[in-house]
């Protein structure tokens, strides 16, 4: 009788052990002993046919394709900034060159864009004309004087911020626009950063976190 009892207890425990020991590794089909990222290398997806695209969320007409900056890099889409700028082309007002403007200024007359405060590097490094073309106000220009359109300001920013540009080209920097589905649409640099004051500003959070608002 005693032996029977002991055997019985063992049997119960073994059954319990077998039933409970292995975790659920077969759900969903993406599991196994390898890490998810490791597995991703071996998963080949035959087709990605979505019934939706980012064009459902954003107007295709208001997007422009970026220039190919690196060999083989994806040429994704960014918002058409020039179409959004309120007083573009700039030459509507600034019809004269910068020198002519400066020369013809009456004493006490306010400078154009006097309200713009530049908080972007030191003045020894940057000033207005580092980015803006003093000869053609409708354009930006690179450090070597090559013209850059306002839509493609990333070419300008990337001269200094090359690591950020690399992340942006890949997809780690820059807000996604219009969802997650292809084709890729991202914010351009100036979509989030004010070029004259690129750092994000301090402000109060939109709400309290886990505490009740009184």
């Amino acid at each position: 009788m005693k032996q029977l009892a002991v055997l019985g207890i063992l049997a119960v425990l073994i059954v319990l052990g077998v039933k409970c020991a292995p975790g659920q590794h077969d759900e969903g089909g993406h599991n196994g002993s390898h890490h998810l990222l490791e597995q991703l290398k071996y998963i080949s997806v035959d087709s990605l046919n979505y019934e939706f695209s980012r064009f459902d969320q954003v107007d295709k007409e208001k997007l422009v394709q970026i220039h190919q900056l690196v060999e083989g890099a994806e040429q994704f889409l960014i918002p058409d900034r020039m179409a959004e700028m309120k007083s573009y082309p700039c030459s509507n007002c600034h019809s004269k060159s910068l020198e002519a403007l400066q020369a013809g200024k009456a004493p006490g007359e306010k400078k154009s864009h006097w309200d713009i405060e530049i908080v972007h590097a030191k003045t020894v490094t940057m000033q207005c004309t580092t980015c803006h073309d003093p000869k053609n106000f409708n354009l930006l220009h690179s450090l070597t004087g090559a013209p850059i359109e306002f839509n493609h300001s990333y070419e300008l920013c990337g001269q200094c911020h090359s690591t950020q540009q690399k992340d942006w080209l890949g997809g780690a920097h820059g807000k996604q626009v219009g969802g997650w589905a292809p084709p890729r649409v991202s914010q351009t640099c100036t979509g989030c950063h004010n070029p004259h004051k690129p750092a994000f500003e301090k402000r109060l959070p939109a709400r309290l976190n886990t505490e009740w608002l009184k």
């Binding site: 990605l48 996604q176 292809p182 890729r184 989030c192």
Partner: peptide
């Protein structure tokens, strides 16, 4: 809603997705 672009979402099975680039390069 994120104003800083700190949040990236997507299909990790799509080799061309932004999220996949982050996982493979960051």
């Amino acid at each position: 809603a994120c104003p800083t672009g700190a949040r990236i979402f997507g299909n990790i099975l799509d080799p061309n997705s932004e999220i996949r680039w982050v996982l493979e390069n960051k």
